[in-house]
């Protein structure tokens, strides 16, 4: 999927950014488990990536430090 800008309620503090809730397709999605996070750098600056599980879905979220915007990069079902 193409990256899609979303709204996220996140905790910023103690050198950490922790997404808590985000809004997508009219739904409020609560972050149940933050499984992984990593950092990449491109011409737009530093991006922080988050692997998240909520219900039976996996979400890949991205936060751009330079634009302070959140994006949804990928969604997949956790049901195998």
């Amino acid at each position: 999927m193409n990256k899609e800008q979303i709204f996220v309620l996140a905790y910023f503090g103690k050198g950490k950014i922790v997404p808590r809730i985000f809004f997508w397709k009219g739904k409020v999605i609560k972050v149940e488990k933050l499984t992984y996070s990593w950092k990449t750098v491109d011409e737009g600056g530093i991006k922080i990536h988050f692997s998240i599980i909520s219900g039976s879905f996996y979400y890949h979220l991205l936060y751009s430090l330079s634009s302070s915007r959140w994006y949804l990069i990928d969604v997949e079902s956790t049901v195998i």
């Binding site: 499984t35 992984y36 692997s51 599980i53 996996y58 997949e76 956790t78 195998i80």
Partner: peptide
């Protein structure tokens, strides 16, 4: 291993 750490639901899958 990094992918399984990101997506733990694949832990028991090849």
């Amino acid at each position: 291993s990094v992918e399984i750490a990101s997506r733990p639901y694949y832990k028991d899958s090849p």
